[in-house]
Design a protein around this nucleic acid. Structure first.
Lengths: 244, 244
DNA sequence: AAGTAAATTTAGGCATGCCGAAAAAATGGA
DNA sequence: TCCATTTTTTCGGCATGCCTAAATTTACTT
């Protein structure tokens, strides 16, 4: 039995703020393996540091997080289950907005951010069914299953790859809408092939051959873009199954 | 120019509570023509009378309502525009839940009640387009247009009609989910024909011939049901156009 | 016209979640 | 090691919106 199915009523009890904190704590460690500090949380949530202190105490009281004074924050199993449920909601809603309501890539984030706190479990289930139970959202992020399992593809940020590497884009961080619009006009999208050519001598920009299979181009990408694009290397696929 | 198009940013500023109060004030006078008292508001909103006093003062400060102490509450033009926008949201969302996500009649109200405060104007517009700009929700209630106009069909509660009257059902109040389920099992629905036969001597129940065109039956309906069913009389249709 | 019952308002409080300012603890450089 | 900077926490406060209990006003009855 998964942790989520056991406490389904619990979800509806937690406030939107609690849900937000837990989700941000979780997503801060989704693509890199460091624990998150209170000040990082404050920055991501757009609140003062002192607000985080208070809220983290509440999360600990609720059994969702563990925290020692002056230390980073971590989720408990229950906290992680709640976070996965929220991530699932968020990404299903984003997928719906794009596929059913014709939203553009860069428009969906804020709307989903609000709706994820409001829709019922029933709504989420029916939405998932209507969308044929997708496993990736429009940005390529994995959508956790209802039982809390996630397939995390092995991926690296484009900026971290050495020249010569080839692969294809499996994830585009949705953190920066402006960047999403840039990629859109450059016609760079999910599943495009990439080859790392090398670094420009003085600019800090990375030269890559990129594009859909039929139209690869050489292009310079700045640090912003290479951090937002995640690449799966060519070769046999490693997928790791993460429980909650 | 409609009132709504002028202050579109205003909507997003009002809190969910303000939106709820304004909507309830409006819907209290939608199907009957009496002003609503604070205690009626309290009952409908599920809050204490004293909470209404405070909130009504706020509505007045916001320019959404007018109120003299110890008197009923009324909306200003701006308040009515906000209310119509909320009603539009609510009914479009209900329609979406039924048509696109397969919700049953009696399941949609609570979900819509929450979502109406959360979705953006963009969402509402695109949803309306996706549903082909419907003018009636699943209960037959009119959906205000984006510019705030509503077509209110001339209708009467079934319980108010004299024996011999014929017409068809154009609205079923969604206030009571249990009743909606009853009507569902009796296969009574929107657009069914009705003929009032007469009152049972001692029961208070009303005998009507009712049902879809191919299968009319005689049936006894209690006071609950006859108050929830709204009938348009046969004959030339009178529609009145209400501005906001 | 007076008295009682009902509706409404006032007053004081509570919970959530945010803030800024100031104190306390950790970190890093010389 | 010690001092300065940064991070985190504590403290007091504020806004929203709800509550109960106690006035106040209105409405009804006789």
């Amino acid at each position: 039995m998964s942790p989520m199915s056991r406490n389904s009523p619990a979800l509806s009890i937690k406030s939107a703020s609690v849900q937000d904190y837990v989700k941000v704590i979780y997503t801060s460690t989704e693509w890199q393996d460091q624990r998150v500090t209170p000040s990082q949380l404050a920055a991501r949530l757009g609140v003062a540091n002192s607000s985080v202190t208070g809220m983290v105490r509440k999360l600990v009281d609720l059994g969702l997080a563990v925290h020692q004074p002056y230390q980073p924050v971590e989720l408990t199993g229950e906290g992680k289950a709640l976070a996965l449920a929220m991530v699932r909601r968020h990404r299903l809603i984003e997928t719906f907005l794009v596929q059913e309501l014709g939203y553009a890539w860069d428009e969906v984030h804020d709307e989903a951010e609000l709706l994820e706190h409001t829709v019922s479990d029933t709504f989420v289930d029916r939405l998932s069914a209507k969308l044929r139970h997708p496993t990736r959202d429009p940005h390529g992020d994995p959508i956790p299953a209802a039982d809390g399992t996630v397939r995390m593809p092995a991926a690296h940020q484009l900026g971290e790859l050495d020249p010569g590497h080839t692969g294809h884009i499996i994830r585009i961080s949705d953190a920066n809408p402006e960047l999403l619009r840039f990629l859109s006009t450059e016609e760079i999208g999910l599943d495009d092939r990439v080859e790392v050519i090398g670094h420009r001598p003085f600019g800090g920009s990375l030269v890559v051959r990129i594009g859909s299979a039929d139209r690869p181009r050489e292009i310079d990408l700045g640090q912003e873009a290479t951090a937002a694009l995640w690449v799966a290397s060519d070769g046999p696929h490693e997928n790791c199954l993460l429980g909650s």
